[in-house]
């Protein structure tokens, strides 16, 4: 096979990608991690990780920093906050171009691009982000002390963060599109029993309005189609995650949710391309499972290289 810049290029710098980098580096394979965002991925969104075996408690940022240090110590190169402008997965040599100018080649590639928070994609959402709309209760909760706020969503995160936000807000209204919640029973009961929390089920936000700050939202009652304004100081959006697989769409086989289809050794539909973590088809999305995926993908890539 022709000479390449790297043995394996890992796309994504979350726990799956970093673990793959550690394993490949430690196996003396020449590895490069390319990440469009900050190293750590969605771990950076977690204030405290308390269910990672062997580590009592650590912030997501710290865990990402340690993994990064480990990967670098074993010789893995890292390029973060790099815009991927082209990726070629077919052929014996794989290519990735970042920022329209630097192209790197490898014999194998691991796609570990993870997921990102879903947005509502309605009018005013981008305009009022940071001016009344937030995606992080622990970051921005104190800006909403004694304010009237909405939490959008019906899963565990939405329910738990709604309860958490009652520490600051005078009133929290949970707006959810269905007539039931998807969260665990304990989270639902805690929210339902909280005196500061109200519910608007079978409802959805149609647009955000205001001036310098968010002032009101237009909410549709899905059962009737009626749209009414609601004055509000803030809206927190927790409607789940979606896989970040746009760069491989049309190149790898994806399912209807745009997750990469893999076998049990994390081979994708393309020879020499592996997928790990939240970007692949999986029901469980945890740091621990991402780390396991990174391990398997790295070992599969090594086996591929040796054959």
């Amino acid at each position: 096979m022709a000479t390449t810049d790297f043995d394996v290029i890992i796309v994504g710098g979350g726990p799956a990608g970093l673990t793959a980098g550690i394993y490949l580096g430690r196996s003396r394979a020449k590895a490069l991690i390319v990440s469009e965002g900050a190293i750590g991925g969605q771990m950076n969104l977690t204030h405290k990780i308390e269910n990672y075996p062997g580590v009592e408690s650590i912030s997501g940022y710290q865990m990402g920093s340690v993994m990064k240090k480990q990967a670098i110590s074993f010789g893995c190169e890292i390029k973060s906050n790099a815009k991927i402008t082209d990726i070629q997965l077919d052929g014996d040599i794989k290519y990735i171009t970042i920022n329209h100018k630097n192209t790197f080649s490898a014999k194998a590639m691991i796609i570990a691009t993870g997921g990102k928070s879903r947005s509502l994609n309605v009018k005013g959402e981008a305009e009022f982000a940071g001016r009344g709309i937030s995606y992080c209760a622990t970051c921005d909760g104190d800006f909403f002390t004694d304010k009237n706020i909405i939490v959008v969503g019906g899963g565990n995160t939405a329910l738990e963060e709604a309860v958490s936000l009652t520490k600051y807000a005078s009133k929290v209204t949970i707006v959810h599109q269905f007539d039931h919640f998807q969260g665990f029973k304990q989270a639902i009961v805690e929210a339902q029993n909280h005196p500061k929390i109200e519910f608007m089920l079978q409802s959805r936000i149609m647009s955000f309005e205001g001036g310098e700050q968010l002032k009101r939202v237009l909410i549709e009652d899905i059962t009737t189609g009626n749209v009414n304004p609601k004055d509000i100081d803030g809206v927190f959006i927790f409607i789940g995650y979606e896989p970040q697989t746009q760069i491989v769409k049309g190149k790898l086989e994806l399912n209807e949710r745009n997750e990469i289809i893999v076998d049990n050794m994390l081979n994708t539909s393309m020879k020499g391309i592996f997928a790990a973590g939240d970007a692949r088809v999986t029901k469980v999305r945890q740091v621990t499972t991402a780390v396991a995926d990174g391990t398997i993908a790295a070992l599969s890539a090594l086996e591929f290289l040796h054959h």
């Binding site: 965002g37 900050a38 190293i39 750590g40 950076n44 969104l45 977690t46 204030h47 997501g60 940022y61 973060s80 906050n81 995606y135 992080c136 622990t138 970051c139 921005d140």
Partner: peptide, 9 residues
């Protein structure tokens, strides 16, 4: 925090 760290990085 989670919204700040990516900006520093």
């Amino acid at each position: 925090g989670p919204m700040c760290v990516p900006v520093y990085d």
